[in-house]
Computed example of a mutant assay.
Amino acid sequence: MDRKSRFIAQLVHVESEEEASAHQAAVRAKHYDARHNVPAWILVDGRERASDDGEPQRTSGLPTLEVLRGAGLKNVCCVTTRYFGGTLLGPGGLVRAYTAAAQAVVENARAEGLLVEMTSVVPVEVRVAYPQYEQVLHVAQNAGAHVAGTDFTDSVLMHLVFRAGEEAAFTAAMTELMAGRENVEVGNARFAEF
C-alpha cells in the first residue's frame, strides 16, 4: 500500500505468449474494478514484454520486467493490479511501488519454495552388461550425471541427464573405458529442472 493505493502482484509460470495473455486476462477479469493491471513476462527463448496499462510510460511495466530479469526468472508472468487510492504518486513513486510489489511476490515465491532452477540438459542413455554397471555408474556420477532411471533386463539401460556440455566428458570416458564397444546414445538438449 502506498498513499492509499493498493498494489497486488501475482506471479505465475507460463511457457508461451498465449499462456501469459491468458493469465493477464484472468487477472483483469478478477480485478475488473481496478484502475490498472500491469503485465510483464519473460520466456526462456528470450521473448519478453511489459505494458504500463495506462500508467505513465516506463513507470510500471518496465520496472516489473526489470525485477523479473534481476531475479534471473524465465517462463514467468507477473501482473500487478493497482487500486487507485486517490493520491497521485508521481513517476518516482509509481516506479518504487511497482518495483516493491514485484520484488515482494518474487521473494514470497522463493520463500515458499515455488521457484525451481531450470537449465539446458542433455539426456544420455547407456546400455551395459551387469558386470560393468557399478563402474559405469561411478564414471557417470563423477561426470556430473543425474540418474533419471535404470532398466534392468538382459542388460542394464541407464537413463542419465547432464547439464548441457557436461555429457562430452562422460562419452569420452565411456569410449576409453569400453574400448570402442560402448553403447551410448546422446539425445537433444532441452530446458528442464536439474
Rank of each mutant, 00 (worst) to 15 (best):
D2T: 14
D2C: 08
R3G: 00
R3F: 01
K4E: 15
R6K: 15
F7Y: 02
I8Q: 09
Q10T: 15
V14W: 06
E17G: 12
E19I: 01
E19C: 05
A22N: 04
Q24M: 14
A25D: 10
R28D: 09
K30R: 13
D33R: 06
A34Q: 03
R35K: 09
H36A: 02
V38D: 04
V38P: 04
V38F: 03
A40C: 04
V44A: 14
V44K: 14
R47E: 12
E48T: 10
E48C: 14
A50L: 01
A50M: 09
S51D: 01
D53M: 00
G54D: 04
E55F: 03
R58L: 13
T59Q: 00
T59G: 11
S60M: 03
G61M: 03
G61D: 07
L62K: 12
P63M: 02
V67R: 05
G70L: 06
A71L: 03
L73S: 07
L73N: 04
V79C: 08
V79P: 10
V79M: 08
R82K: 09
R82T: 04
F84I: 00
G85L: 03
G85W: 02
P91L: 07
P91V: 12
G93R: 04
L94P: 02
V95I: 15
R96Y: 11
A97H: 03
A97S: 14
A100I: 06
A101M: 09
A101E: 09
A102T: 12
V106G: 10
A109R: 09
A109F: 06
G113T: 09
L115Y: 05
V116N: 09
E117K: 13
E117V: 14
S120L: 15
V128Y: 05
A129E: 12
P131I: 02
Y133H: 14
E134P: 07
Q135D: 11
Q135G: 02
L137K: 10
H138N: 15
A140M: 07
Q141I: 11
Q141A: 08
H146S: 14
F152Q: 07
T153A: 15
T153V: 14
S155E: 13
S155A: 15
S155W: 13
V156R: 03
M158S: 04
V161G: 10
V161Y: 06
F162G: 06
R163K: 14
G165D: 10
T171R: 08
A172C: 00
A173Q: 11
M174A: 11
T175H: 07
L177E: 03
L177V: 00
M178P: 00
M178Y: 00
G180A: 10
R181D: 12
R181N: 11
R181P: 00
E182F: 01
E182I: 02
V184D: 01
V186T: 12
N188E: 15
N188H: 13
A189R: 15
F191I: 12
A192F: 06
E193W: 12
F194Q: 14
